[in-house]
Design a protein around this nucleic acid. Structure first.
Length: 482
DNA sequence: TGAAATGTTGGGGCG
DNA sequence: ACGCCCCAACATTTC
């Protein structure tokens, strides 16, 4: 009875049921479907799932299990070495085929090789395209090299035509073998053991496929048409906030792509904003391709010249930055939004990251590690790519002399001070013109607003003008060291 | 997906 | 009417 042999869908960073090539292939195969997730914390080395991401993963897995049950199946959960877990399920249930989507992180690629070596002879392996619109092998410059500059990459991607339409979820799945051994999501121990600090996450997010689709609908209705401008205003809901859903694969990029395209054809007001948004989706592609071609990107500067950069070791400055106590309101608001919600507005990420790297001269890898632990959308490719871009050492990076002025950025993008007032409430009573620079206020104004510098709100930990010239000097050194 | 310094221009006040 | 200065508003260049 070959048709009754079960097949395995190995779930990884694709926690959804719709537009899921592996699940669809398994459903078509015909046998019982074992949807399997393995928590294997040893593989990733220093890039083990961070605290905020563990919270998301916990709830994402619960949502996935519920979706699978709706289809007549269930999620099978193990905590083990991945190869051992896959092998034991294959042998125990004499599985016929193992379906999975590829990943792009260096340790996940290594794992795929290992799975192939260990299981290639006992089960049919079907490795399917991954979480991207375009696989890295399908796009290259005229000379056959990977793109290092975004705009030509973007044009080349568009020239390949629109991505394929997303596939629907299977109607129904044959249930897994009865009595198959599985942990519950709770038993994975992903949630914090001691103090529960996840209240802000719960208020901010609905992990899972349904939450992702709702978030996309809200974005298309409320923010997409004004995205080009609105995305820069951190005090408003101007961005999609889809990043954690995309990271965990709760929604596929081509689903997002086509949802935007359909909205654009229904309502031409979305044309401009929609295109600007899709461009950001292509940045995600670009970053994944860069990680694929340069697997050291999370650890080493893309531009080798930065190996000689005179970084400073300054634990107390790093501490102030991470706690949101730098004395620069926009930076502090961002860092506190991050701590509270597991997410930070993209405009503010650039400013806060630039502050760590250029004003404090602290290595970008330190900031990258902090974001890795605190972001619900922590993603190896996007995080490394973003930090290298800000630091000026990445592919197509921000020029080394581009130093954000946190005061001007605040005045430009949070002129009314809504964002700062939300996250730095001790400054809430300052007038708009001083909300981004409390250190410029006179004694009277400060007293009236209830602000006591270096008491209930810090003075600037470094002077902007001084920090700017210091950064330019440091950057000038490596620029001339040819 | 900057900011600051420097250069240019043109309107208005004024002798 | 004219030239001169001031300076905002823009443009360019420099970091």
């Amino acid at each position: 009875m070959p048709d009754s042999a079960p097949v395995i869908v190995w779930y990884r960073d694709d926690l959804r049921t719709s537009d899921h090539a592996a699940l669809n292939a398994a459903a078509r195969h015909g046998g019982p479907v074992i949807a399997l997730f393995v928590l294997d914390e040893e593989r990733a080395g220093r890039w083990q799932t961070g605290g905020a991401s563990r919270w998301w993963l916990h709830h994402g897995l619960e949502a996935l299990a519920a979706s699978l049950r709706d289809l007549g199946s269930d999620l099978v959960i193990r905590r083990d070495d991945t190869v051992d877990a896959l092998e034991s399920v294959v042998r125990e249930h004499q599985a016929d085929t193992l379906y999975f989507h590829r990943r792009y992180e260096p340790f996940e690629r290594e794992l795929e090789d290992e799975v192939h070596r260990a299981l290639g002879d006992i089960v049919t392996l079907r490795r399917l395209r991954g979480r991207l619109l375009i696989e890295p092998e399908r796009i290259a410059t005229g000379s056959g090299a990977p793109y290092r500059v975004f705009t030509p990459f973007y044009k080349a991607l568009l020239a390949l035509g629109e991505p394929a339409e997303p596939d629907p979820a299977p109607d129904r799945l044959a249930p897994p073998p009865t009595g198959i051994e599985s942990l519950t999501v709770d038993q994975l121990g992903l949630l914090p053991a001691g103090t529960d600090w996840t209240g802000g996450l719960r208020e901010s997010w609905v992990p899972g496929e349904t939450g992702a689709h709702e978030r996309l609908d809200v974005f298309l209705e409320e923010a997409a048409s004004d995205y080009r401008e609105g995305r820069d205003a951190p005090g408003t809901v101007g961005t999609s906030r889809l990043s954690p859903h995309l990271h965990f694969g709760e929604i596929s990029p081509r689903h997002v792509w086509h949802a935007v395209r359909e909205s654009q054809s229904a309502e031409s007001a979305l044309t401009t904003g929609g295109d600007a948004f899709l461009r950001e989706l292509v940045w995600r592609e670009f970053c994944h391709h860069l990680l694929f071609h340069w697997p050291r990107m999370p650890d080493e500067p893309f531009n080798k010249r930065f190996a000689a950069f005179p970084w400073r070791d300054d634990p107390s400055a790093f501490d102030a930055w991470s706690r949101g106590e730098t004395g620069y309101p926009l930076v502090d608001a961002g860092m506190r939004e991050l701590w509270h919600t597991g997410w930070m507005h993209n405009r503010v990420r650039m400013v806060a990251a630039s502050f760590l790297v250029k004003h404090l001269l602290i290595p970008w890898q330190r900031g990258e590690a902090w974001f890795w632990d605190t972001l619900v959308d922590a993603d190896l490719a996007n995080n490394a790519c973003g930090w290298q871009w800000v630091a000026g050492c990445g592919a197509d990076a921000s020029p080394y002399f581009r130093i954000f002025n946190p005061i001007l950025q605040g005045e430009k993008f949070d002129g009314g001070g809504d964002y700062v007032r939300r996250w730095v409430p001790e400054l809430a009573n300052l007038p708009d013109r001083l909300i981004h620079a409390p250190f410029r206020a006179d004694t009277d104004t400060l007293a009236k607003a209830g602000v006591r510098l270096d008491d209930n709100y810090p003075g600037p930990i470094v002077d902007h003008g001084f920090a700017r010239s210091r950064a330019l000097e440091a950057l000038g050194k490596i620029k001339n060291d040819e």
